[in-house]
């Protein structure tokens, strides 16, 4: 058994479809006969890539200009659904715009949203469930959506593997944005990019993350140095993002990025549940922490109980001298 139709929220950056959207397409292909996308932008820009990943149609609003994207996209999708012929299931990634669209859509259609989902089980249109890890990933909770109308599910990044299947370009169809009234009043004045150079957290084979155990903002340089030597992406716990040591884009965890590198090296990080959900899927985990009771050691393949100020400089030196 499978679903008739699934819609995937397509997001793109500088003309390239985001990996999360491609991951959702891979799952959608698995569970539905027809997979379509909706997009807040010009669908022609991404129709080939979406098609290659199995979407037959991309419903697109056209350029949204300086509008904050969530409201117009949700309004357009809700209007389309009201015309009839809506999907059984709508999949969105847990991203900034994904959450905005899902929340707006849920209130408009008066249906719930399943959040933080890492797997979707769909027998038929009336039997759709999502699996959500809780308590730092130690327990999996399966929840079935029982309301009428399309089911809405927000999926965490890295839950599925994106894979091109080499189909034709997706057909571009217009998705009309209705009158928004007061809800559409938020406007983007300027976009700022503060991206790090070097490998990206999302797809680096190795990630080196630092936490409050580094003691001082300047000491984060050691994490960057180690990352550079290993061609790794530097990451961080929320504690040091909140403290302003590094930008938010470095944060790994529940409210940050989900990473699944081959090797994750945690330096001076305690291993709070909210951090662990973002890195537990790493193939190998190395932790350096002076407290041998630190929770991070319970999931580390190699744990070093020691002072980062002693271990890191020696490690860096040893790698440099190779």
């Amino acid at each position: 058994m499978s679903l008739d139709k699934v819609w995937v929220f397509a997001e793109a950056y500088e003309g390239k479809v985001k990996t999360i959207s491609l991951e959702l397409l891979a799952k959608a292909r698995d569970i539905a006969d027809t997979v379509e996308c909706f997009y807040g932008g010009d669908g022609d820009d991404i129709a080939a890539e979406l098609g290659a990943h199995g979407a037959t149609t991309v419903w697109s609003t056209g350029e949204l200009g300086d509008q904050l994207a969530g409201v117009p996209i949700a309004a357009a999708v809700a209007a389309k659904i009201a015309e009839g012929d809506g999907p059984d299931l709508i999949l969105l990634g847990t991203t900034y715009d994904g959450r905005d669209v899902a929340g707006r859509l849920s209130a408009k259609l008066d249906v719930p949203v399943l959040t933080n989902v890492v797997d979707v089980i769909a027998e038929d249109a009336d039997d759709i469930s999502g699996v959500e890890p809780v308590f730092g990933g130690t327990t999996d909770v399966t929840t079935k959506l029982t309301s009428d109308g399309p089911k809405i599910v927000l999926v965490r990044p890295k839950s599925f593997a994106a894979e091109a299947v080499g189909s034709d370009d997706a057909e571009v169809e217009e998705l009309e944005v209705p009158e928004l009234g007061a809800t559409g009043a938020a406007t983007v004045v300027e976009r700022h990019v503060e991206e790090a150079t070097g490998p990206k957290l999302d797809d680096a084979a190795i990630v080196v993350s630092g936490g409050r155990g580094l003691g001082d903002k300047d000491k984060y340089a050691m994490v960057e140095q180690l990352a550079k030597l290993l061609k790794a992406a530097p990451g961080a716990s929320r504690a040091i993002v909140d403290a302003g040591w590094v930008p938010y884009s470095y944060q790994v965890g529940q409210t940050g990025k989900v990473v699944k590198p081959t090797i994750y090296i945690a330096v001076g990080i305690s291993g709070a549940t909210q951090h662990m959900v973002g890195m537990k899927g790493s193939k190998y985990i190395v932790a350096i922490n002076k407290d041998k009771e630190a929770p991070i050691f319970s999931i580390a393949d190699l744990g070093i109980v020691g002072d980062v100020h002693k271990v890191l400089p020696k490690l860096i030196e040893a790698l440099q001298s190779r």
Partner: peptide, 24 residues
């Protein structure tokens, strides 16, 4: 709520590996 919890299971646990104390 429009939703119903149908299953709660322990996730596959990650085993702790080797833990060593730094003596230099």
């Amino acid at each position: 709520g429009g939703q119903e919890i149908t299953d709660i299971v322990a996730a596959e646990a990650r085993e702790a590996g080797e833990i060593i104390e730094d003596e230099g």
